[in-house]
Design a protein around this nucleic acid. Sequence first.
DNA 1: TCCTTTCGGTTGCGATATGCAACCTAATAC
DNA 2: GTATTAGGTTGCATATCGCAACCGAAAGGA
Lengths: 158, 158
Amino acid sequence: MSRAEQLREVFTECGISAALAVVGERWSFLILRGAFNGLRHFEEFQTNLGIARNILSNRLGRLVEHGILRRDPDAADRRKVTYRLTEKGRDLLPVLLSLRQWGERWISGHPSNPVLVDRYTRQPIAPMIVQSADGRPLSLRDMEWVDRADLDREVNAA
Amino acid sequence: MSRAEQLREVFTECGISAALAVVGERWSFLILRGAFNGLRHFEEFQTNLGIARNILSNRLGRLVEHGILRRDPDAADRRKVTYRLTEKGRDLLPVLLSLRQWGERWISGHPSNPVLVDRYTRQPIAPMIVQSADGRPLSLRDMEWVDRADLDREVNAA
DNA sequence: TCCTTTCGGTTGCGATATGCAACCTAATAC
DNA sequence: GTATTAGGTTGCATATCGCAACCGAAAGGA
């Protein structure tokens, strides 16, 4: 495989483009943030986010299709529909939090409300950081991008 | 402030919407991924990402405007322009990595290439996780959203 | 010197996505 | 019954996107 083909593969097969294809639209992250904060119903999302109803309808549908939200009828009131995060959706929390922390630090300049705290110690959670396999914090200087095939060869050589 | 106003504030003042206003467009993350992987020039981004030239031009301009990329003329070849990540841009790495890891786990189903490794141990970096202030991993069950004002009251009460 | 290629764009145009407002159906509340 | 609520859908105007063609300045080659 040529260098060019290799790079091309990198960018099409990448987990980032895969993820963005599913949650990359303008409102998706804000809807998910709402879900993490306890929003459950169509009208709640609509009034709190200020999103257009047709777009909200479309996004909720996509998120359900992709298994990120679950759509259940409300047993008590048959008009109502409940949207909840699935495990796949809950697993987006690190993405949401690192995005939020970045926005707080570099754009809005102040911490947002509400705060996510450790339920027992009542301390806000730590900033999201990149860590080594054994848990040391890593800065960009400590890391390197390696082609998977080359890495395998390194391992075999050792 | 009423409950409704409070919620409304939550969603407009949030770090996530602040961040998305800057890097929320369709191609922004992929351009940043390119930059993290060493892409520097307009043509490199264009051919590797397969993005339309006018959109690329527009996105690079926005990222520069917002101080996420720096745009420098190339001393050796005056036709060329070099785009590099600033500190603000480099600080988006946790967002990129958690998004990528989620995409690998839940969408593409396999690790992407190239791998980001610890330069010294040659081990791939750890999955991004949410941690307490003192470094314990936290699951959603261990956390709670708290209004900042309430949290301050708790602290004063203790 | 002239000719070609490269680099980093811009322009025009059609396709797509988005936002707003009005409308709709089923279910509940009064 | 009538009004209201919940969760949408429909039409229409506008904004954004992607493609292809074009452009000017700089570099490379004969």
